[in-house]
Design a protein around this nucleic acid. Structure first.
Lengths: 111, 111
DNA sequence: CACCTATATCGTAATATTGCAATATTAAAA
DNA sequence: TTTTAATATTGCAATATTACGATATAGGTG
């Protein structure tokens, strides 16, 4: 026990969950929002912006990258990070689709 | 250490993260999708649909409810669950907003 | 080359999550 | 009122996550 039983769920469900999970931490939300705020890709500035130790930030960046939410490109001495537009679109479409389904059934439900 | 340092982040970031986190598990994605599929609220059917033990499902439902993603209403012997439309809308709007910001800057970024 | 800066990785402690058996609770049914 | 059905809670073991100090790596700069 303790480990998620992913074999019980569909590929899509597992994929969606792990993408969503990657944003399920305030530090990673903060990183994403910072990448948006500066309105361009960031080369080595994130550590100074978020009050966590450098190895911790590095770890969070790694998770965001593995989940496909951000992209990193080596730029000389440092690394440029930016948000992956496609990943965000996937999330938007997922919740948009659910929203639509819910609107169609308005009133049918106990809500 | 080991606990999230939520005091370093804004209220909004913490709130968004915990809402997102609640969906960051395939069982909870599956529960949400099942609630959508049946196109009405469900009274006591979820345990048979998802291959996890009853206490485990109950726990996942509790988390979804605490995060505001679903609502439960006692219906005699069992409990009716349904998706909370507002919560889904909040998520859709969050990712929609990010998506828009990304589109505006097309090309500006290293992606 | 030696040195500095930026980032990654390793090791590890603290804490959280996942999953389930056992048990409790609650309300309808017999 | 006993029984049955549905759901919740408790307790616990297995595993995952979070955070950080120490250290490694890799690219610039002097």
């Amino acid at each position: 026990m303790g480990a998620t039983k992913s074999e019980h769920f569909t590929e899509k469900q597992n994929a969606m969950a792990s993408m969503i999970k990657a944003l399920g931490h305030p530090a990673r939300v903060a990183i994403l929002e910072y990448l948006l705020k500066v309105d361009t890709c960031i080369c080595g500035d994130i550590v100074n912006e978020i009050p966590l130790a450098q190895p911790t930030i590095s770890q969070h960046l790694k998770e965001l990258k593995q989940a496909g939410l951000i992209k990193g490109r080596i730029e000389g001495n440092s690394i440029c990070y930016c948000v992956d537009e496609q990943a965000i679109k996937t999330m938007r479409e997922y919740f948009g689709g659910i929203s639509q389904q819910l609107e169609k059934r308005a009133g049918k439900c106990c809500s």
